[in-house]
Amino acid sequence: MEIVLAILIGVLYTAGVYMLLRRSILKFIIGIIFLSNATNLLVFISSGIIAGQPAFVDGTTPSPNNLSDPLPQALVLTAIVIGFGIVVFTLALKFKFFETTGTDDLDQLQQTDN
């Protein structure tokens, strides 16, 4: 199963990078979302995945062996929320940019270099 997931990660990264390289800013943002999904998944599975019990404990079950690792879950949760904030801001930036310039084409962005 892990191999399938690894391939999924590869596909998500490929899609993300491909979308980043497009000229449309909207596609660019979608690319960012794919990339962050791929990264979250990578973090999630690289720390070992167990299809079994979620990490809930009470006083009686202190044996960690058959529980899924809660720490990467917390990390990915943090990453997802941070990603949310950033994507929202990116969307706003994109919107403002379109409102100001009337273009969605990244190749028009050459004034600030040189």
Binding site: E2, G10, V11, L12, T14, Y18, A38, I45, S46
Partner: peptide, 21 residues
Amino acid sequence: RDLFIALSFGSAMTVLALKSI
């Protein structure tokens, strides 16, 4: 060209993921 670059990066990440698992 873009697809090629994206693929080369994506496949590298796949290998990394496999190794890490």
